[in-house]
Structures are given as structure tokens and as C-alpha cells.
């Protein structure tokens, strides 16, 4: 085992500083008394107060939360099925097309996905709003979910499922009593990923939403175009805090579950 060199320690420290400084600065300036966002005017939490009195923000947050909860849940179910099909179903007709449709959305520019979904909804005469945003989010969320779950499924020995079947389990029973406990951490991670991607999406939501359905990123974007404001800093800080807590909690829970699943 070689020791951790100064060169490596420095590049790691610089890399982490690059990743975290902008976020840190944003958080610090959300507590700035002054409306001028680059001049420090003393500590204050007044922008958080302003934020909670702003009904447009609250309403947009509620829309975003509902879309994210529903879309992440459906996307995780579909994504797990897709992962199962990719890893366990062997060769079936159209497998190449299927895997292509799973991987393509991961790198597809959002403007193309957004535009194409919007034109689909219009051509089948569907009213745009929360429902269309949710359908769009399910579609890209399931692709990310399926990649996360399939990486876990690949590592899991299929002969355990076969053994369960030999001992008289139906395939469904084998899935719920053997496979599911092992891939649960991956499923939780997949749900969280789909959830945050949905919370975060601006471009696809802008294309697929209609009058009356404004998500939080759309609201933030329209404000940000007018310049940096302390309210947006405060809102960003809250979102960062929630996500950081969620991810840390999930990883701790995941570790505990994994500890139980792998004896």
C-alpha cells in the first residue's frame, strides 16, 4: 500500500473546493442583510421570511413536489421492470431497440426530449399541465432508475433465484423473497435519483407544461433571468439543505440495509 502523496491530496482538496465553494458562497449570502448580493451588510434571515410570504413560490413548490413524488414512484416501478428485462430476460425480439431507448435519454439533450414530448401531447390533443409534466418526468426518470437497478442486478447471482424456484417458489415469490431484499438499496437510490431529477428539471417542464402549471425551477429561472436576488439565494439554500439531509439519511439507511442483506 503506497502512501497518499501530496500531489494527490492537493488535487483532491482543490477539486472539492471547486465543487463546494460556489454553493457555500450562495448559502452564506442568503443570510446577507443587504439587497446588493455581492456586498456584505450583516447577518439577517429576513429573505427567508420574504420567501415564505411569496405565494407564487409556495404554489410552484407544491406543484413541483406533487409531480416529483408521483413521477419518481412510477418511474422506479417501470425502471425496475426494465432493468429486470434487460438483465434477466435473456435475448428477446427487439432487445437492441429496448436497450437503446433506455440509454439514449440519459444523454439526450433536454431541448429535444422536451420538444418531442410536447409535439406528441399536442398531436394527440392532450391538455398540457401537471399531468403532461408528470408523464414526461416518468419517461426520463425510468431510464435513470433502470440503469441504477440493473447495475445491482448484474452483480447479483441469478442462481439464487433459480435455487428458490427449484425449492418450489413461483417466479413472483422468488422475486419478492430473494431478489427484492437484495436490490432494495438500489431501488431506494433509483427513487431518490428520479425524485431529484424531477425536482430539478427546467427544460422539459417548460416545454410540456401548460397555463397554470408552473414548477419551482421554471419560477426560479424567470426570476434569475432578471438578476441575482437574495430571495433566490434563500430558496436555493433551503433546497440544498433538504437534498443534503435526504442524501445523507438515504446513504446511512442504505448502508444498514446492505449490512443486513449481505451476510
Amino acid at each position: 500500500m503506497r502512501r497518499f502523496s501530496w500531489f494527490n491530496a492537493t488535487s483532491l482538496a482543490l477539486g472539492l473546493a471547486f465543487l463546494y465553494l460556489p454553493i457555500l458562497i450562495l448559502v452564506v449570502y442568503s443570510f446577507n442583510e443587504s439587497r446588493l448580493v455581492t456586498v456584505w451588510g450583516g447577518f439577517s434571515t429576513k429573505w427567508y421570511g420574504e420567501l415564505f410570504r411569496n405565494e407564487q413560490f409556495l404554489e410552484a413548490a407544491w406543484v413541483t413536489l406533487r409531480v416529483a413524488l408521483v413521477s419518481a414512484t412510477v418511474a422506479t416501478v417501470l425502471g425496475t421492470l426494465a432493468a429486470y428485462a434487460l438483465v434477466r430476460a435473456g435475448r428477446f425480439r427487439g432487445r437492441t431497440l429496448f436497450s437503446g431507448m433506455i440509454y439514449a435519454p440519459l444523454v439526450m439533450p433536454e431541448v429535444i426530449t422536451g420538444l418531442s414530448l410536447l409535439l406528441l401531447f399536442i398531436s394527440i390533443g392532450m391538455d398540457r399541465g401537471i399531468v403532461t409534466i408528470t408523464l414526461a418526468h416518468i419517461t426520463f426518470g425510468m431510464c435513470f432508475a433502470s440503469v441504477v437497478v440493473s447495475s445491482r442486478l448484474v452483480a447479483f447471482d441469478a442462481s439464487l433465484e433459480e435455487a428458490a424456484c427449484d425449492l418450489g417458489c413461483t417466479p413472483v415469490q422468488a422475486f419478492f423473497s430473494v431478489t427484492l431484499p437484495v436490490i432494495t438499496p438500489a431501488i431506494v437510490a433509483a427513487w431518490l435519483l428520479a425524485f431529484t431529477l424531477s425536482l430539478d428539471d427546467l427544460v422539459i417542464a417548460s416545454f410540456t407544461s401548460g397555463p397554470g402549471a408552473t414548477t419551482l425551477p421554471m419560477k426560479i429561472y424567470s426570476q434569475v433571468r432578471l438578476g441575482v436576488t437574495p430571495e433566490i439565494n434563500a430558496l436555493s439554500t433551503l433546497l440544498i439543505g433538504v437534498v443534503a439531509l435526504g442524501v445523507v439519511a438515504a446513504s446511512l439507511a442504505g448502508k444498514r440495509m446492505e449490512g443486513r442483506a449481505d451476510p
Binding site: 454553493i23 458562497i25 431529484t196 436555493s236 433546497l239 443534503a244 442524501v247
Partner: peptide, 30 residues
């Protein structure tokens, strides 16, 4: 832990992370 530190910013909003740079890079910025 280190890997998680690298991933963590990715979980926070893309829009917010881009927005954070406006305050840093502008002419009278940090």
C-alpha cells in the same frame, strides 16, 4: 466518504449551481 462528497453537489439543483456562478463571475462579483 470522499466519493459521496464528489457526488453530493450533483444531487442539488443544476439550475441553482449554474446560478451560483453568476454572483461569482460578474464584473462586481466575488
Amino acid at each position: 466518504t470522499l466519493v459521496m462528497l464528489v457526488i453530493l453537489p450533483f444531487w442539488t439543483s443544476f439550475l441553482i449551481r449554474v446560478y451560483a456562478w453568476i454572483g461569482i463571475l460578474k464584473t462586481e462579483g466575488l
